[in-house]
Amino acid sequence: MPPARRNIVFWIFGGGFIGSLISFLYPVVRFLNPPAVSEASVNEVVGGKGQDLAPNAGKIVKFGTQPVLLIRLGQTEWRAFSAVCTHLSCIVQYDAPRKLIWCACHNGQYDLSGKVIAGPPPAPLKEYAVHLRGEDVVISRS
């Protein structure tokens, strides 16, 4: 077969082979890509009863699918922040003796307004609004 015709056959068969490979792989790649799951938007949650959390203590509260750190600073002063560390997504905790928010994974530290004061986190923690409704502590998007 002359080289020119051989090249044409090579490209037709080679292209067909690659095309068929792509057509096999495309559904596999799409299959492995998880579908986006729409979740009901949560705007506020009850974080428990006021008397359940002592002053200078914190706890993790479910805010839809996200963890939120609720902190009681004094008798009437409450704060809430996203509990997901902005560094590598570990869940932070309230460090009562040092009065700061601490991530145990890479020693990230935030002050009580959510700002980074030490360690590798690149951004502050998102703050949530907290108010009391009767005995309930209500956390809402600020």
Binding site: H87, A104, C105, H106
Partner: peptide, 23 residues
Amino acid sequence: AFASAPAGIRPEWYFLAPFYTLK
């Protein structure tokens, strides 16, 4: 999924070098 990372958490020994570098 809704608990804080415990104090003293660290990965397996073969990932310790990148773990400490990230700190």
